[in-house]
Each structure stands twice: as C-alpha cells, then as structure tokens.
Simulated scan of single mutants.
Amino acid sequence: MPLKSYLLAAVALLALTFSACKKKGAIEPKPEEELLKVSLENVAEGQYTAAPGTTYTFQVKVNSVMPPEGVNVEVNAITDPGGIVFPQNPVAPSLDSTINITLTGLEPIRTVKVTILITSVSNPANKISKYFWITNKSDN
C-alpha cells in the first residue's frame, strides 16, 4: 500500500511540473544596437589643435544610428606632460547627433590632452573613445 501512495504522489508532482512548463509566447530578442561611430568636429582628432583663448568649443558628431536612450559624453583634460587635471563641465546625456562641448580653464602656452568617452545610455558596453591635444596660444 505505501508504494501506491508514493506512486500517486510522484505522478501528481510530474503532472504539475509538466503543466507548469507549458511553452509561453515566444520572447522577442532585443534588437542589436549599432556600434557607435563618432567623429570630432573643429579639432584635429588624434593631433594638436590651437586654442585662441582659455575656452574652446568643438563638436562630437554621432555618425551611427543614435541609441534609443541617447549617449553620455565624458570629457577629461590633463596636461601633457605633467598630468595636472583640468576639471571640465559635465555634459548632459543627449539624443542629438551633434553635441557641442566647450573646454574651459585652458592656461596660456600649455598643452592639454583631451579624452572624450562616448557611451550608449541603453548599452554601457557600446562605447568609443577619442582624443586630441590642445594648446592655448594666447599670451594671457
């Protein structure tokens, strides 16, 4: 007798398991996001640029399809040589394909390496980095 009660319980458990594992509607895969393609306008990418004063404006242009939630842009400016950090204003997340960035605090006759990190808001693994050097050529 005890074998029958165990067998009945096992069959009931199996029936519950199989009924709970019914195939639900197909889950649609998330569409792949195009890899970011970016160019810098108004600077010589990977080279030296001259600034006429303590500020300089340039553009980050997203040439690929804009991610659905836009991009984050991080700007770092460090003297080269020397490694002194020049804090820059934060850039708000953007859905625009052209983003204006203004460098500030450029000291006269000092070269600064500027690194730009562009990251997709919806996919943080989708990112690209660009850089250039800039020198304030003014006397004061």
Rank of each mutant, 00 (worst) to 15 (best):
Y6A: 03
Y6N: 09
L7G: 12
L7K: 10
A9N: 08
A9P: 05
A10I: 13
A10M: 10
V11M: 00
V11R: 00
A12D: 03
A12N: 03
A12L: 09
L13W: 00
L13V: 02
L14D: 06
L14W: 13
A15I: 08
A15E: 05
A15F: 12
A15T: 09
A15K: 01
L16M: 07
L16V: 02
T17M: 13
S19H: 14
A20R: 07
A20D: 04
C21K: 04
C21V: 02
K22T: 07
K23S: 02
K23C: 01
K24W: 00
K24E: 00
G25F: 08
A26N: 13
I27V: 15
I27E: 14
I27S: 14
E28Y: 09
P29N: 07
P29H: 11
P29I: 11
K30F: 07
K30G: 00
P31V: 01
E32Q: 12
E33R: 07
E34V: 10
L35F: 10
L35C: 08
L35S: 10
L35Q: 11
L36W: 12
L36A: 02
K37H: 11
K37S: 12
K37E: 13
V38W: 03
S39Q: 07
S39Y: 12
S39A: 07
L40Q: 01
N42G: 10
V43T: 03
A44Q: 15
A44H: 15
E45K: 00
G46Y: 06
G46F: 04
Q47R: 10
Q47W: 08
T49A: 04
T49W: 08
A50Q: 13
A50F: 14
A50K: 15
P52M: 15
P52G: 14
G53N: 04
G53W: 02
T54K: 05
T54N: 03
T54C: 01
T55C: 05
T55E: 05
Y56I: 00
Y56G: 00
Y56C: 00
T57A: 05
F58H: 07
F58Q: 03
V60H: 03
V60I: 11
V60A: 02
K61N: 08
K61C: 04
N63G: 01
S64T: 04
S64H: 01
V65D: 06
V65G: 05
V65F: 13
M66T: 11
M66Y: 14
P67F: 09
P67S: 02
P67K: 06
P68Y: 09
P68A: 04
E69K: 11
E69M: 11
G70S: 08
G70M: 13
